[in-house]
């Protein structure tokens, strides 16, 4: 029966050996490399995935940090603004007070000076008036001295004035 099916032990063994050689060659040259390549690839993909989650984690943390920093900064700014406002108000009040003070002082100085001026002016005016009156009197006296009637009248008047002032 084996004969009629064409089975020949020599050929059978030859085929087995040639398959063995094929297995050896494929395993040595191809499959071992594919094996390592696949392992490497798996490792690389796993690493990439791990890196990705790590990066995402870090990014999240970073974002949170940033957000917190933002918040803090905003708060600080707010605070500073409030402070600045207060300070501005304070300086304003101070300035206003100072300005008022200085203005008052100046006003006072000015008033004093004005009074002084007034006094001076009065003195001056009275000086002027005196000298003017003297000169007028001298002039009048010079004019009238030639007039004996006026002289008498004048003497009379002055006597009367003296009388009045004595009484």
């Amino acid at each position: 029966m084996l004969e009629s099916l064409g089975i020949n032990p020599v050929l059978l063994i030859a085929q087995a050996i040639s398959f063995g050689i094929l297995y050896y060659v494929l395993n040595k040259f191809l499959f071992s490399q594919i094996r390592t390549a696949l392992d490497e690839r798996t490792a690389a993909v796993n690493k990439t995935l791990a890196d990705k989650s790590e990066i995402e984690h870090r990014l999240q943390a970073f974002e949170q940090e940033q957000k917190a920093a933002h918040k803090k900064a905003a708060e600080e700014v707010q605070k500073m603004m409030v402070e600045a406002k207060d300070a501005a108000a304070a300086t304003k009040a101070e300035l206003v007070a100072k300005a008022k003070d200085s203005a008052n002082a100046e006003i006072a100085v000015a008033q004093k000076r004005i009074e002084q001026e007034k006094l001076n002016a009065e003195v001056e005016v009275s000086k002027h008036a005196k000298s003017l009156a003297q000169s007028i009197v001298q002039q009048l006296l010079a004019e009238k001295s030639s007039d004996p009637q006026w002289q008498q009248e004048q003497i009379k008047a002055s006597l009367e004035t003296l009388k009045q002032s004595k009484s």
Partner: peptide, 23 residues
């Protein structure tokens, strides 16, 4: 048939060495 199987084997071996050579 063994000639054909040798051809098939040889073809695969050549392919394996070519592919494995510049993997």
């Amino acid at each position: 048939s063994i000639l054909s199987s040798w051809i098939a084997t040889l073809l695969l071996i050549v392919l394996a060495i070519v592919v494995g050579g510049n993997f």
